[in-house]
């Protein structure tokens, strides 16, 4: 009786998890559509730099590679953190999410350093259509990373205080989806914006 009730409860929870995950998936896909419009915009406008330097004169490939590797590693550590969370290992979960968080911050630091350098050199959002589309595309991704970090930080505090309950594990699994998604979007920024400028 008791055992049956438990499995029933578990089944309900699994169904709820699937529903929530699918709902979040729909959000991710609409977000992807937004990014695709920004990509299309960049693809159309990247040649319009009217006399000021083009991408290949501004971008630094080693910096872009560094950012890519940092974000890729953070996507990986996020996955490892989720494995620990599903096992119910609170300390390992917190440890791996902390590493993910630090890598995310490091990524953001490099991106902002790059933006700052461009702006100090006089290449701002307003300079030309190429830079407008560049700042909007890469900046939107950076904002997503920022909100992901805020989300990760608050969820980690909850895990610390309340332990790994099923609601928090579900939340973490959505967060990890979000984080992997941001890495996938970055692959295309790296390829189209940075590598593409030198192709």
């Amino acid at each position: 009786m008791n055992e049956q009730a438990l499995t029933h409860h578990e089944r309900l929870e699994a169904a709820a998890n699937d529903r929530v995950k699918f709902g979040f998936w729909i959000y991710l896909m609409t977000d992807l559509l937004m990014f695709s419009v920004l990509f299309a915009c960049y693809a159309v406008l990247h040649g319009n730099h009217v006399g000021s330097p083009a991408g290949r004169e501004l971008f630094s490939l080693p910096l872009a590679l560094k950012e890519t590797l940092i974000l890729l590693t953070s996507s990986f550590t996020c996955g490892i953190a989720m494995v620990a969370a599903r096992r119910g290992n609170k300390n390992m979960t917190l440890f791996w999410f902390a590493i993910t968080f630090i890598l995310g911050l490091l990524f953001l630091k490099f991106e902002l350093t790059e933006f700052r350098q461009f702006i100090l050199e006089g290449h701002t959002l307003k300079t030309n259509a190429f830079l407008s589309s560049f700042f909007v595309l890469v900046g939107t991704h950076g904002l997503h990373i920022t909100s992901g970090l805020l989300w990760m930080g608050t969820t980690m505090i909850f895990v610390m205080k309340r332990g790994l309950n099923s609601a928090l594990v579900r939340k973490l699994s959505l967060l990890s989806l979000f984080w992997h998604f941001l890495d996938i979007v970055w692959i295309f920024i790296f390829t189209i914006v940075y590598l593409g400028a030198f192709a």
Binding site: T68, L72, F76, G79, I80, I187, F190, T191, L195, F198
Partner: peptide, 24 residues
Amino acid sequence: QTKSYVIGFILSLIFTLVPYYLVQ
């Protein structure tokens, strides 16, 4: 599961470094 993340990580590393090499 851990294994799948490790495989994905290594493959992604390769598919990041190869295009970088091609462009560089």
